[in-house]
Design a protein around this nucleic acid. Structure first.
Lengths: 350, 350
DNA sequence: CTGAAAGCGCTAACAA
DNA sequence: TTGTTAGCGCTTTCAG
């Protein structure tokens, strides 16, 4: 309905040139006070607001950031996205969303996005670029920041997953557990290198405690609560089941909890469970976990990108490592005597 | 790095005019085959890709849809968003995300967005506009579709919440329950009219079954699992506690489950619980619920908006009502004799 | 302090 | 079938 008024209409109305209108629009100091006032009144009167597209074209910047993330089903992604959104909104940047639901989409998407003048910058969440993609991005010159992904060539915000893995495992060991299992995504998917690092932390902690690693205590599957539940069931039906399970994510830890319930195993009485991430549900479920600042990873990453766009200088810090902390809640405890007894009698029957 | 090449470079390279380049870019049939080929080679050689901003300005359309939704914490919003994203991606539309975290932001955001030439259309998720906003949007002429929100002036996709309320309540009554409580968000927030409708369905079902409504069995709070847990605890500690609770969302139903666990009340033995929405967690938790097509609400709404943009004609159907279905799982059952006994002895002790 | 004018990169009449 | 040209709405020198 409202016939869009342009800068020209305003200029005419205020009896000035469009250049002057543009000046007041951009808060240039080089405008006499009364002229400025007249223009502002005209703007008001015509209910004018500048066309952002024209502005973008003229300025050569889009004031838009593309956020790329894998299928945003998982709570941790959503939490990160929220952080990004907040930071961007605070700085009046638009956020266009690209979700990579399939592996194939990845390359196309990145190619399309790295074409300049589409967006001013790229934020990749949990999507470590492989060498080919990295090269592409790099020579496209598109400012890019990685969140929850590590690559030497790009500024990134991560946590120390190896340390986290040790932290979780050590917690279990300190409690008295010796049969500690590790449940995670597949380790070799390029998607989530974090998984492998957490696994390495697990191995190190075990070694440090002089506990031999048992291959049967290490299970992998695609990410998901249901998959974890199945894997955990296997684990818990071993001849000598673990007394503690370290799940590489909270979502998976919840699956472990499901399995325990399925089998009538009490937590933490007969089984200790620790997760990783610190998603909201973990709190409700009273799940012990290694908490990482998900929301903050979003705000931090977005902040880095923005300052990268602002300054011509290099980024002061190209790697930010966010802190990890053990949140001890109700799903971990010492292996009970009863639990040991059960297992003995169980073994006897076979 | 790569010095952006423009349409002019391509034209020069192919020894044609920019108009011709534009034609092949837009698949105009009015180009001789060999010319087209030459241009395509030039495009290839220069690694040219058209500047989308310039295109938008020239065409007057942005090929971008703004999606506005409340704090996207809740699983049901995320699920809807996924649907929207899919549909838009399939049609090569960009999706800019606006999350309204505070009530105040609402008006500003909508005002900014409804300014044309920012985006081609608006998708409001779970945000029924009030009359003022509706008027604003309407005369801004911005094509707008509502998802999970109802307003006569806008095309919208909804479910029949009143029916859903009846469905849930009737299920409980059919099972033999007479003390059926209703737990929901506050009913008077303009945000979620659905809540009130579900409540009305609950009342109707009760009335139809000749069960008098008991005010004590109706509790409200702000949305959230934790809040629901608290409310449910109250409910379950009543002198005459309900034997069944209908929670107006799955998130809240999960809170009810928490409360039952807190109090050592077995589900469905001593308490039946039914939710609403059909989020993923409901399946894992084996929660009986009224399922609505969340993802589809996204694809459908986005589809409506796109066809609205495509055709000059009016929308064939301005209201789409998606089906609701009772998914009977493990949290509802007949009120057990034991349960009744408990309550009697409980009452005796007071 | 203000205005005229040249773009930003592309599309779309209008001619040829 | 192709080229010329006038915009799209704004920013930004460069003069005055």
């Amino acid at each position: 309905m409202s016939a869009e008024s342009t800068i020209r209409d305003v200029a005419k109305f205020a009896r000035v040139s469009i250049a002057t209108v543009s000046r007041v629009l951009n808060n240039s100091p080089a405008v006499r006070e009364d002229t400025r006032k007249r223009v502002e009144e005209a703007i008001e009167a015509l209910d004018y607001s500048p066309n952002p597209i024209a502005r973008k074209l003229s300025r050569g910047r889009t004031h838009t950031i593309a956020v790329v993330l894998p299928l945003f089903t998982l709570p941790s992604f959503v939490e990160r996205l929220r952080g990004v959104h907040q930071e961007l909104a605070d700085n009046a940047y638009d956020l266009v969303l690209y979700s990579i639901e399939s592996d194939r989409q990845r390359d196309e998407q990145l190619a399309r996005l790295s074409s300049p003048s589409r967006v001013d910058g790229l934020l990749l969440i949990s999507l470590p670029p492989d060498d080919e993609q990295a090269a592409l991005l790099l020579d496209s010159g598109m400012p890019t920041v990685l969140i929850d992904a590590n690559h030497a060539k790009f500024p990134h915000v991560i946590v120390d997953d190896e340390y986290g893995g040790r932290l979780a495992t050590t917690h279990l060991i300190d409690l008295g557990h010796e049969r500690v299992a590790f449940l995670s995504d597949f380790l070799d998917t390029p998607f989530h290198k974090s998984m492998r690092l957490r696994y390495e932390g697990y191995r190190t902690a075990l070694a440090d405690a002089g506990i031999p690693f048992d291959d049967a205590y290490h299970v992998c599957d695609t990410h998901g609560r249901h998959e974890a539940r199945m894997q955990a069931q296997q684990l818990l039906q071993l001849e000598e089941p673990p007394t503690a399970i370290f799940a590489a994510s909270d979502t998976q830890a919840i699956g472990v909890l499901d399995a325990a319930q399925d089998l009538g195993i009490s937590v933490p009485g007969d089984l200790s469970v620790i997760g990783f991430d610190g998603i909201r549900d973990a709190e409700y479920l009273n799940l012990t976990t290694i908490e990482q600042p998900l929301y903050e990873s979003g705000t931090t990453g977005a902040g880095m990108l923005l300052s990268l766009l602002r300054e011509t200088s290099e980024l002061p810090q190209s790697e930010v490592v966010l802190p990890l902390s053990l949140i001890r809640r109700g799903t971990t405890g010492a292996p009970s005597a009863v639990s040991r007894l059960d297992k003995i009698s169980y073994r006897r029957n076979h």
